[in-house]
């Protein structure tokens, strides 16, 4: 569902051999993909491990806000779609963990970083899903923003990440469309249903617009990530594309984007938006959002409750493993 680019973290080229660095940059500039065994600057490796693991954690934590409505979906059709979507998010997390592992970090280490709270994940999942309309708003806005962010990642210079993103993007289009369908049905419904849809848009709009990360001036890692072609567009460019695509979709539903400064700017050929509260963004990323504690506690509980399954599977595999060495006598 979701990538926010890299949250925090510094990327400088590091103390690598300048000759190797120059050769590496030449490969990047020639649009050659970097593969797992290739030489790469230590900071390139570190930046990718952080970004891909944060992305994977976001997919895994992102199962929770929607999982909250699985048992209360209004129809069987909606329930089947939501279940498929939540399963996709789990799958996307697994593709991404596997891509990060090609860089030399163990799965268990990443899990540990998530469970201890050392790792970051997308701020958007620290908001609660209060009504069924939130499921529509998440598909439409959150997955819509994620797709905007992830399509350029399909061309990321690191091959395993780019390939994982191609799979994710193929699967994600349904996520956004089913969300918009939920919103459409509510917007066409009774006044109380329209009010639900508007309320969901009111609460999800700003967090969705902030998913692209801080403005380019404040994003320390952005320049180096662009030079390395991990990233292809700036946070603000992607945010603008999202706003330009989404505001007319809201208008079609006769819903109001909750930003009094949001209006078409004829001179720029884009929609303007009002200022965003980046203090709020950082507060939520760092654990101060309404749902941070609950999300992490649920993840820890799920991991702990699965321990016996992992132990039993490992014990069974060990018992049935063929002897590795056959005696010669």
């Amino acid at each position: 569902m979701y990538s926010q680019g890299l949250i925090g973290g510094q990327a400088d080229p590091g103390p690598d051999d300048p000759v190797l660095l120059a050769l590496f940059q030449a490969r990047i500039d020639a649009e050659e993909k970097i593969e797992a065994g290739d030489w790469m600057p230590a900071a390139y490796r570190k930046t990718l491990i952080r970004q891909i693991s944060q992305h994977a954690h976001s997919e895994i934590i992102g199962m929770q806000p929607e999982g909250n409505w699985l048992a209360r979906a209004p129809t069987l059709r909606r329930k089947a779609a939501l279940l498929a979507k939540v399963q996709d998010e789990g799958g996307h997390g697994l593709y991404l963990y596997a891509a990060a592992e090609t860089l030399g970090i163990a799965r268990e280490e990443m899990q540990e970083q998530l469970l201890t709270g050392a790792a970051k994940y997308s701020s958007i999942f620290n908001y609660p899903t209060l009504s069924w309309a939130d499921i529509g708003a998440i598909g439409w806005l959150v997955d819509g923003a994620a797709i905007m962010n992830q399509i350029p990642l399909c061309r990321c210079s690191y091959g395993p990440y780019a390939r994982a993103m191609i799979r994710v993007c193929k699967e994600e289009s349904f996520h956004q469309r089913q969300g918009y369908e939920v919103m459409t049905r509510l917007a066409e419904g009774a006044p109380v249903q329209r009010a639900m849809a508007q309320d969901a848009l009111n609460r999800w709009w700003t967090p969705a617009v902030m998913m692209f990360g801080p403005p380019d001036g404040a994003s320390t890692h952005s320049d180096q990530s662009m030079i390395w072609k991990i990233k292809r567009f700036t946070n603000d460019d992607l945010r603008q594309r999202f706003v330009d695509a989404t505001v007319p979709q809201a208008a079609y539903l006769s819903l109001t984007v909750p930003d009094p400064d949001c209006r078409w700017n004829e001179a720029r050929g884009h929609y303007d938006i009002g200022p965003l509260d980046w203090d709020e963004f950082w507060r939520v990323v760092k654990g101060g959002g309404p749902m941070n504690r609950e999300r992490l506690n649920a993840r820890r509980a799920a991991h702990a409750e699965g321990a016996w399954v992992r132990e039993a599977a490992a014990a069974y595999a060990a018992k049935h493993a063929k002897p590795q060495v056959v005696a010669a006598e």
Partner: peptide, 10 residues
């Protein structure tokens, strides 16, 4: 791609 599992069947 790749994945983690205890044995071939899983």
């Amino acid at each position: 791609g790749s994945l983690h599992a205890a044995d071939a069947a899983m």
